[in-house]
């Protein structure tokens, strides 16, 4: 990561680029990945409600899908899915 020279720091080292943490690929932390069974999914969106990464969003077909750039693989979505439509799978399997 490139850090600025002191002359280029904002006042008081403030950060003036809101939400730029979204650059960080926290998906690297993941050891398991959520896999959605579209047949079971009722598109209720509870997985998105309970995702602590705020990285599950509705796609064009109305399915809720995690952005794997951020998903840390905690597995809350799989546990909370009322239809058991999400399974956690070991990365690389």
């Amino acid at each position: 990561m490139q850090y600025p020279a002191w002359e280029d720091l904002e006042l008081g080292a403030a950060i003036t680029t809101p939400g730029n943490a979204s650059n960080l690929k926290t998906g690297d932390w993941r050891s398991s990945v959520p896999v959605l069974d579209e047949d079971k999914c009722v598109k209720c969106g509870l997985c998105a409600v309970y995702c602590p990464e705020f990285c599950i969003a509705e796609d064009e077909e109305g399915f809720y899908r995690p952005d794997l750039y951020y998903c840390k693989g905690c597995g809350i979505c799989a546990v909370e899915c009322p239809k058991e439509a999400i399974k956690m799978q070991r990365e690389g399997e």
């Binding site: 960080l24 409600v49 602590p52 705020f54 990285c55 693989g73 905690c74």
Partner: peptide, 22 residues
């Protein structure tokens, strides 16, 4: 009418399964 706009961006460094940031 659940608000969807997340005002905390992904890419934060909370632990896996953090109930606090959620």
């Amino acid at each position: 009418n659940l608000p969807r706009e997340s005002l905390i961006s992904p890419g934060h460094r909370a632990c896996q399964g953090c109930g606090e940031i959620l």
